[in-house]
């Protein structure tokens, strides 16, 4: 199996999204055969053990990539605090310390758009609950490049501003319950050769 991935799953969320991301990761089949990159809004300049929160059962590995780190198929990555996470082609990550977007660094828009440019139609973007409009523009870029966008149903979201903004901006996104997100993500993974 080639280690450079051809497909990517990007997950973005803010307020209320941590338990949902954890549930998605826990319930997808292991070992992962797809690369997953997670962006959540988080505090900067503080020590954080967020990466440990997601992997309590130790059935997979998750870490915050360093600049120019090679992307490995099957790994789960978490955008580091205080940096934007970009894809330098399909081969490696690239970090960026430019202005926050929607008061956020890492920004979901930045990572989603960059994934769309690098992976095109092989991109699956999942946008979850959150209290601002970050992600809407990124979802737009994913769709424009032929990728797929799943947005958590605002009625089931703890904070609906983020999914609502994305749905308003993008007519072609798929609005899903968490259950459906897991189902569709698994079937996306299963189709990867």
């Amino acid at each position: 199996m080639a280690t450079t991935p051809n497909h990517i799953i990007v997950i973005g969320g803010s307020s209320g999204s941590l338990p949902i991301i954890k549930e998605i990761l826990d319930r997808l089949q292991k070992p992962f055969t797809c690369t997953i990159a997670i962006v959540v809004h988080r505090l900067r300049n503080v020590h954080s053990d967020l990466s440990k929160v997601f992997v309590q059962k130790k059935t997979f590995k998750l870490h915050e990539p360093e600049d120019k780190e090679l992307i490995v198929r099957g790994n789960v990555y978490l955008a580091p605090a205080n940096y934007h996470l970009l894809f330098e082609g399909k081969e490696s990550f690239c970090l960026d310390y430019s202005e926050p977007i929607w008061y956020s660094r890492p920004s979901i828009d930045v990572t989603f758009s960059s994934a769309a440019h690098a992976f095109g139609k092989n991109t699956l973007a999942i946008l979850l609950t959150g209290a601002n409009a970050d992600g809407a523009e990124g979802c737009h870029t994913v769709l424009k490049n032929g990728g797929t966008v799943l947005v958590q149903n605002p009625e089931e979201s703890a904070f609906d501003a983020m999914p609502k903004a994305a749905i308003e901006r993008n007519k072609n996104c798929i609005v899903c319950s968490v259950e459906e997100i897991i189902e569709k993500t698994q079937s996306f993974i299963n189709k990867i050769p």
């Binding site: 970009l86 894809f87 330098e88 690239c94 960026d96 430019s98 960059s114």
Partner: peptide, 12 residues
Amino acid sequence: YAKASFTRRVER
């Protein structure tokens, strides 16, 4: 320069 971030800057 790294292509991903440089492209973003030029677009900006």
